[in-house]
Design a protein around this nucleic acid. Structure first.
Lengths: 138, 138
DNA sequence: TTATTAATTAAAAATTATTCTTAATTAAAA
DNA sequence: TTTTAATTAAGAATAATTTTTAATTAATAA
Protein backbone atom coordinates (compact mmCIF):
# COMPACT_ATOMS: atom_id res chain seq x y z
CA UNK A 1 0.00 0.00 0.00
CA UNK A 2 1.98 2.93 -1.28
CA UNK A 3 -0.56 5.65 -2.00
CA UNK A 4 -4.32 5.96 -1.90
CA UNK A 5 -4.83 6.37 -5.64
CA UNK A 6 -2.98 3.21 -6.53
CA UNK A 7 -5.00 1.21 -4.00
CA UNK A 8 -8.26 2.75 -5.26
CA UNK A 9 -7.33 1.89 -8.85
CA UNK A 10 -6.61 -1.70 -7.87
CA UNK A 11 -9.92 -2.02 -6.02
CA UNK A 12 -11.79 -0.59 -9.02
CA UNK A 13 -10.02 -2.92 -11.41
CA UNK A 14 -10.99 -5.89 -9.23
CA UNK A 15 -14.63 -4.67 -9.21
CA UNK A 16 -14.82 -3.75 -5.56
CA UNK A 17 -16.98 -0.80 -4.57
CA UNK A 18 -15.33 2.25 -3.10
CA UNK A 19 -17.51 2.77 -0.06
CA UNK A 20 -16.78 5.56 2.44
CA UNK A 21 -16.08 2.92 5.09
CA UNK A 22 -13.47 1.26 2.89
CA UNK A 23 -11.93 4.62 2.05
CA UNK A 24 -11.64 5.41 5.76
CA UNK A 25 -9.99 2.06 6.47
CA UNK A 26 -7.53 2.56 3.62
CA UNK A 27 -6.75 6.08 4.85
CA UNK A 28 -6.12 4.72 8.34
CA UNK A 29 -3.71 2.13 6.96
CA UNK A 30 -1.72 4.12 4.36
CA UNK A 31 1.66 4.98 5.85
CA UNK A 32 0.65 3.50 9.21
CA UNK A 33 3.74 2.08 10.88
CA UNK A 34 2.02 0.92 14.10
CA UNK A 35 0.96 -2.55 12.80
CA UNK A 36 -2.60 -2.20 14.13
CA UNK A 37 -4.87 -5.10 15.02
CA UNK A 38 -8.44 -5.28 13.71
CA UNK A 39 -9.81 -3.82 16.92
CA UNK A 40 -7.37 -0.90 16.85
CA UNK A 41 -8.58 -0.14 13.32
CA UNK A 42 -12.19 -0.57 14.43
CA UNK A 43 -11.72 1.91 17.30
CA UNK A 44 -10.20 4.49 14.96
CA UNK A 45 -12.84 4.13 12.24
CA UNK A 46 -15.65 4.26 14.81
CA UNK A 47 -14.85 7.91 15.48
CA UNK A 48 -15.79 8.77 11.90
CA UNK A 49 -18.40 6.01 11.40
CA UNK A 50 -20.00 5.24 14.78
CA UNK A 51 -22.11 2.46 13.19
CA UNK A 52 -19.17 0.59 11.63
CA UNK A 53 -19.19 -3.13 12.30
CA UNK A 54 -16.34 -5.60 12.63
CA UNK A 55 -17.54 -7.46 9.55
CA UNK A 56 -16.83 -4.37 7.45
CA UNK A 57 -13.38 -4.05 8.96
CA UNK A 58 -12.50 -7.70 8.45
CA UNK A 59 -14.07 -7.80 4.99
CA UNK A 60 -12.00 -4.82 3.83
CA UNK A 61 -8.81 -6.17 5.39
CA UNK A 62 -9.38 -9.49 3.64
CA UNK A 63 -9.79 -7.76 0.28
CA UNK A 64 -6.60 -5.75 0.76
CA UNK A 65 -4.69 -8.89 1.74
CA UNK A 66 -6.00 -10.78 -1.29
CA UNK A 67 -4.94 -7.90 -3.53
CA UNK A 68 -1.48 -8.08 -1.97
CA UNK A 69 -1.78 -4.56 -0.57
CA UNK A 70 -1.69 -5.59 3.07
CA UNK A 71 0.31 -8.08 5.10
CA UNK A 72 -0.77 -10.14 8.10
CA UNK A 73 1.60 -10.65 11.00
CA UNK A 74 1.37 -13.51 13.50
CA UNK A 75 4.00 -12.05 15.80
CA UNK A 76 1.57 -11.91 18.75
CA UNK A 77 -0.16 -15.04 19.93
CA UNK A 78 -3.77 -15.45 18.83
CA UNK A 79 -3.96 -12.05 17.30
CA UNK A 80 -3.40 -10.74 13.80
CA UNK A 81 -1.59 -7.47 13.21
CA UNK A 82 -1.70 -5.71 9.87
CA UNK A 83 1.15 -4.07 7.99
CA UNK A 84 0.40 -1.90 4.95
CA UNK A 85 4.08 -1.97 4.01
CA UNK A 86 4.31 -4.91 1.62
CA UNK A 87 8.01 -4.42 0.82
CA UNK A 88 10.08 -7.33 2.16
CA UNK A 89 11.12 -6.66 5.74
CA UNK A 90 10.98 -8.27 9.16
CA UNK A 91 9.51 -7.46 12.57
CA UNK A 92 10.60 -7.01 16.14
CA UNK A 93 8.16 -7.28 19.06
CA UNK A 94 9.26 -5.40 22.14
CA UNK A 95 8.25 -7.43 25.19
CA UNK A 96 8.31 -4.31 27.37
CA UNK A 97 6.29 -1.74 25.41
CA UNK A 98 4.55 -4.28 23.16
CA UNK A 99 5.32 -2.30 19.99
CA UNK A 100 5.99 -4.04 16.69
CA UNK A 101 8.97 -2.45 14.97
CA UNK A 102 9.93 -2.81 11.30
CA UNK A 103 13.32 -4.35 10.60
CA UNK A 104 14.68 -3.45 7.20
CA UNK A 105 18.12 -4.88 7.85
CA UNK A 106 18.74 -7.60 5.32
CA UNK A 107 19.11 -11.16 6.57
CA UNK A 108 21.42 -13.28 4.39
CA UNK A 109 18.83 -15.51 2.94
CA UNK A 110 17.95 -15.56 -0.70
CA UNK A 111 17.41 -19.09 -1.91
CA UNK A 112 14.13 -20.28 -3.46
CA UNK A 113 14.31 -23.60 -1.66
CA UNK A 114 15.24 -24.86 1.76
CA UNK A 115 15.99 -28.59 2.10
CA UNK A 116 14.23 -29.14 -1.27
CA UNK A 117 11.03 -27.49 0.03
CA UNK A 118 9.89 -24.66 -2.24
CA UNK A 119 9.63 -21.33 -0.43
CA UNK A 120 6.86 -18.93 -1.41
CA UNK A 121 7.44 -16.57 1.48
CA UNK A 122 9.06 -16.36 4.86
CA UNK A 123 8.73 -14.28 8.01
CA UNK A 124 11.27 -13.47 10.68
CA UNK A 125 9.91 -12.43 14.06
CA UNK A 126 12.34 -11.06 16.63
CA UNK A 127 11.42 -10.84 20.31
CA UNK A 128 13.26 -8.76 22.89
CA UNK A 129 13.61 -5.25 24.29
CA UNK A 130 13.56 -2.30 21.91
CA UNK A 131 16.20 0.44 22.06
CA UNK A 132 13.77 2.97 23.60
CA UNK A 133 12.94 0.61 26.46
CA UNK A 134 16.62 -0.26 26.93
CA UNK A 135 17.34 3.46 27.42
CA UNK A 136 14.45 3.80 29.85
CA UNK A 137 15.70 0.87 31.97
CA UNK A 138 19.28 2.19 32.28
CA UNK B 1 12.28 -32.31 25.95
CA UNK B 2 14.91 -34.94 25.38
CA UNK B 3 13.85 -37.91 27.47
CA UNK B 4 11.05 -38.68 29.91
CA UNK B 5 13.24 -39.03 33.00
CA UNK B 6 14.84 -35.63 32.59
CA UNK B 7 11.45 -33.97 32.19
CA UNK B 8 10.08 -35.85 35.22
CA UNK B 9 13.08 -34.75 37.30
CA UNK B 10 12.56 -31.16 36.30
CA UNK B 11 8.86 -31.31 37.17
CA UNK B 12 9.66 -32.82 40.56
CA UNK B 13 12.31 -30.23 41.25
CA UNK B 14 9.81 -27.49 40.47
CA UNK B 15 7.26 -29.10 42.83
CA UNK B 16 4.76 -30.18 40.23
CA UNK B 17 2.86 -33.39 40.81
CA UNK B 18 3.40 -36.27 38.43
CA UNK B 19 -0.19 -37.18 37.63
CA UNK B 20 -1.01 -39.92 35.12
CA UNK B 21 -2.58 -37.32 32.84
CA UNK B 22 0.62 -35.29 32.81
CA UNK B 23 2.70 -38.39 32.18
CA UNK B 24 0.49 -39.27 29.21
CA UNK B 25 0.84 -35.76 27.78
CA UNK B 26 4.62 -35.88 28.18
CA UNK B 27 4.74 -39.32 26.53
CA UNK B 28 2.71 -38.00 23.63
CA UNK B 29 5.10 -35.10 23.18
CA UNK B 30 8.53 -36.75 23.64
CA UNK B 31 10.08 -37.24 20.23
CA UNK B 32 6.92 -36.00 18.51
CA UNK B 33 7.89 -34.27 15.28
CA UNK B 34 4.34 -33.42 14.12
CA UNK B 35 4.06 -30.08 15.98
CA UNK B 36 0.60 -30.88 17.37
CA UNK B 37 -1.97 -28.30 18.43
CA UNK B 38 -3.72 -28.51 21.81
CA UNK B 39 -6.72 -30.22 20.26
CA UNK B 40 -4.56 -32.83 18.51
CA UNK B 41 -2.99 -33.62 21.87
CA UNK B 42 -6.43 -33.66 23.51
CA UNK B 43 -7.73 -36.16 20.93
CA UNK B 44 -4.78 -38.47 21.49
CA UNK B 45 -4.90 -38.34 25.31
CA UNK B 46 -8.67 -38.88 25.29
CA UNK B 47 -8.13 -42.43 24.03
CA UNK B 48 -6.32 -43.29 27.26
CA UNK B 49 -8.20 -40.85 29.53
CA UNK B 50 -11.72 -40.38 28.17
CA UNK B 51 -12.48 -37.85 30.93
CA UNK B 52 -9.50 -35.59 30.20
CA UNK B 53 -10.36 -31.92 29.94
CA UNK B 54 -8.80 -29.12 27.95
CA UNK B 55 -7.80 -27.34 31.14
CA UNK B 56 -5.51 -30.26 32.01
CA UNK B 57 -3.98 -30.18 28.54
CA UNK B 58 -3.40 -26.43 28.55
CA UNK B 59 -2.22 -26.44 32.16
CA UNK B 60 0.41 -29.09 31.44
CA UNK B 61 1.52 -27.42 28.22
CA UNK B 62 1.93 -24.13 30.09
CA UNK B 63 4.09 -25.80 32.75
CA UNK B 64 6.32 -27.42 30.13
CA UNK B 65 6.70 -24.12 28.30
CA UNK B 66 7.58 -22.29 31.52
CA UNK B 67 10.18 -24.96 32.30
CA UNK B 68 11.65 -24.41 28.84
CA UNK B 69 10.85 -27.98 27.82
CA UNK B 70 8.35 -27.06 25.11
CA UNK B 71 8.18 -24.42 22.42
CA UNK B 72 5.14 -22.60 21.04
CA UNK B 73 4.87 -21.91 17.32
CA UNK B 74 2.73 -19.17 15.78
CA UNK B 75 3.23 -20.38 12.24
CA UNK B 76 -0.50 -20.91 11.70
CA UNK B 77 -2.91 -18.04 12.16
CA UNK B 78 -4.78 -17.97 15.46
CA UNK B 79 -3.57 -21.34 16.52
CA UNK B 80 -0.68 -22.49 18.64
CA UNK B 81 1.39 -25.50 17.67
CA UNK B 82 3.75 -27.15 20.12
CA UNK B 83 7.27 -28.39 19.51
CA UNK B 84 9.03 -30.55 22.14
CA UNK B 85 12.34 -30.00 20.34
CA UNK B 86 13.79 -26.98 22.11
CA UNK B 87 17.08 -27.00 20.18
CA UNK B 88 17.37 -23.91 17.95
CA UNK B 89 15.80 -24.58 14.58
CA UNK B 90 13.21 -23.13 12.22
CA UNK B 91 9.93 -24.22 10.66
CA UNK B 92 8.35 -24.66 7.27
CA UNK B 93 4.57 -24.78 6.77
CA UNK B 94 3.50 -26.63 3.66
CA UNK B 95 0.50 -24.84 2.20
CA UNK B 96 -0.60 -28.00 0.38
CA UNK B 97 -0.48 -30.71 3.08
CA UNK B 98 -0.50 -28.30 6.04
CA UNK B 99 2.41 -30.07 7.75
CA UNK B 100 4.93 -28.15 9.82
CA UNK B 101 8.44 -29.34 9.00
CA UNK B 102 11.58 -28.75 11.08
CA UNK B 103 14.35 -26.80 9.39
CA UNK B 104 17.74 -27.41 10.94
CA UNK B 105 19.65 -25.61 8.20
CA UNK B 106 21.49 -22.74 9.77
CA UNK B 107 20.50 -19.22 8.78
CA UNK B 108 23.40 -16.75 9.01
CA UNK B 109 22.19 -14.78 11.93
CA UNK B 110 23.97 -14.66 15.22
CA UNK B 111 24.01 -11.12 16.59
CA UNK B 112 22.53 -10.22 19.99
CA UNK B 113 21.08 -6.98 18.66
CA UNK B 114 19.31 -5.82 15.56
CA UNK B 115 19.22 -2.07 14.93
CA UNK B 116 20.12 -1.50 18.61
CA UNK B 117 17.11 -3.58 19.78
CA UNK B 118 18.13 -6.38 22.11
CA UNK B 119 17.10 -9.81 20.83
CA UNK B 120 16.01 -12.45 23.35
CA UNK B 121 14.74 -14.88 20.73
CA UNK B 122 13.68 -15.08 17.12
CA UNK B 123 11.58 -17.32 14.93
CA UNK B 124 11.80 -17.97 11.21
CA UNK B 125 8.67 -19.29 9.54
CA UNK B 126 8.87 -20.47 5.94
CA UNK B 127 5.72 -20.94 3.84
CA UNK B 128 5.54 -22.86 0.60
CA UNK B 129 5.25 -26.36 -0.85
CA UNK B 130 7.15 -29.22 0.79
CA UNK B 131 9.24 -31.65 -1.24
CA UNK B 132 6.71 -34.48 -0.88
CA UNK B 133 3.92 -32.34 -2.29
CA UNK B 134 6.20 -31.07 -5.08
CA UNK B 135 6.80 -34.70 -6.13
CA UNK B 136 3.10 -35.47 -5.98
CA UNK B 137 2.26 -32.50 -8.23
CA UNK B 138 4.81 -33.42 -10.92
C1' DT C 1 -31.74 11.70 -13.84
C1' DT C 2 -33.87 7.77 -12.35
C1' DA C 3 -34.34 2.86 -11.93
C1' DT C 4 -32.10 -1.38 -11.45
C1' DT C 5 -29.18 -4.72 -9.43
C1' DA C 6 -25.58 -6.71 -7.34
C1' DA C 7 -22.31 -5.70 -3.79
C1' DT C 8 -21.87 -4.08 0.74
C1' DT C 9 -23.33 -2.87 5.13
C1' DA C 10 -24.57 -3.35 10.30
C1' DA C 11 -26.10 -6.33 13.68
C1' DA C 12 -26.07 -10.26 15.85
C1' DA C 13 -25.27 -15.06 16.14
C1' DA C 14 -21.82 -18.63 15.48
C1' DT C 15 -17.33 -20.45 15.66
C1' DT C 16 -12.77 -21.43 17.33
C1' DA C 17 -9.09 -21.41 20.48
C1' DT C 18 -7.88 -20.54 24.88
C1' DT C 19 -8.42 -19.20 29.77
C1' DC C 20 -10.81 -19.06 34.05
C1' DT C 21 -13.74 -20.74 37.92
C1' DT C 22 -15.23 -24.06 41.04
C1' DA C 23 -16.09 -27.99 43.61
C1' DA C 24 -14.43 -32.62 43.89
C1' DT C 25 -10.51 -35.56 43.73
C1' DT C 26 -5.92 -37.15 44.44
C1' DA C 27 -0.75 -37.18 44.96
C1' DA C 28 2.61 -36.54 48.18
C1' DA C 29 4.08 -34.96 52.76
C1' DA C 30 3.50 -35.28 57.68
C1' DT D 1 -3.27 -43.11 57.94
C1' DT D 2 -4.39 -38.32 57.88
C1' DT D 3 -3.74 -33.95 56.13
C1' DT D 4 -3.28 -30.45 52.76
C1' DA D 5 -2.25 -28.30 48.86
C1' DA D 6 -2.14 -29.12 44.03
C1' DT D 7 -4.67 -30.89 40.32
C1' DT D 8 -8.57 -32.45 38.02
C1' DA D 9 -12.99 -32.30 35.00
C1' DA D 10 -16.69 -29.66 33.65
C1' DG D 11 -18.38 -25.99 32.02
C1' DA D 12 -18.67 -20.99 31.82
C1' DA D 13 -16.18 -17.00 30.18
C1' DT D 14 -13.36 -14.53 27.05
C1' DA D 15 -11.34 -12.90 22.83
C1' DA D 16 -10.72 -12.81 18.02
C1' DT D 17 -12.65 -13.77 13.89
C1' DT D 18 -16.20 -15.49 10.65
C1' DT D 19 -20.78 -16.19 9.06
C1' DT D 20 -25.60 -15.09 8.28
C1' DT D 21 -29.18 -12.13 6.96
C1' DA D 22 -32.04 -8.45 5.86
C1' DA D 23 -31.59 -3.67 4.75
C1' DT D 24 -28.94 -0.28 2.40
C1' DT D 25 -26.18 1.79 -1.12
C1' DA D 26 -22.75 2.40 -4.98
C1' DA D 27 -22.30 2.00 -9.66
C1' DT D 28 -24.33 0.84 -14.06
C1' DA D 29 -27.79 1.09 -17.53
C1' DA D 30 -32.03 2.97 -19.17
Amino acid sequence: MKDKNTVIERLKKANFKLTPQRMAIIETLIGNKTHPSADAIYDKIKKKFPMISYSTIYNTLRILIDLGELRELSIKENKINYDPNTEPHHHFLCEKCNRIIDIFQEINFKSEHINTHKIRNYEIYFYGICSDCLKRIK
